[in-house]
């Protein structure tokens, strides 16, 4: 739960969206109005916060908030 809360907080700050908009299935591009540069910056923020590195080819698979949370879990983030 703590991980999800933190992820959503970062998304709210980076994309200027509300908590209500940040449902797990929300797509960054289609629902949260992000463009490709927004996503790059968002991922940088995740890397910084969780002390991990995300490769560009992994980035392509991340479309929704749930994708980010699942991905962080596979990296061992709790």
């Amino acid at each position: 739960m703590a991980l999800e809360t933190k992820v959503i907080e970062i998304i709210m700050e980076q994309l200027g969206v509300t908590r209500e908009e940040c449902v797990p299935e929300a797509s960054f591009v289609d629902d949260l109005g992000a463009d490709s540069l927004d996503i790059v910056e968002l991922i940088m923020e995740m890397e910084e916060n969780f002390g991990i590195q995300i490769a560009d080819d992994e980035l392509d698979k991340i479309r929704t908030i749930q994708d980010v949370i699942d991905f962080l879990k596979t990296k061992g983030v709790k």
Binding site: L37, V40, E41, M44, E47, E48, Q53
Partner: peptide, 10 residues
């Protein structure tokens, strides 16, 4: 360099 913002140039 990985910490440079994608918005630096624009």
């Amino acid at each position: 360099p990985r910490r440079i913002s994608p918005f630096a140039i624009p």
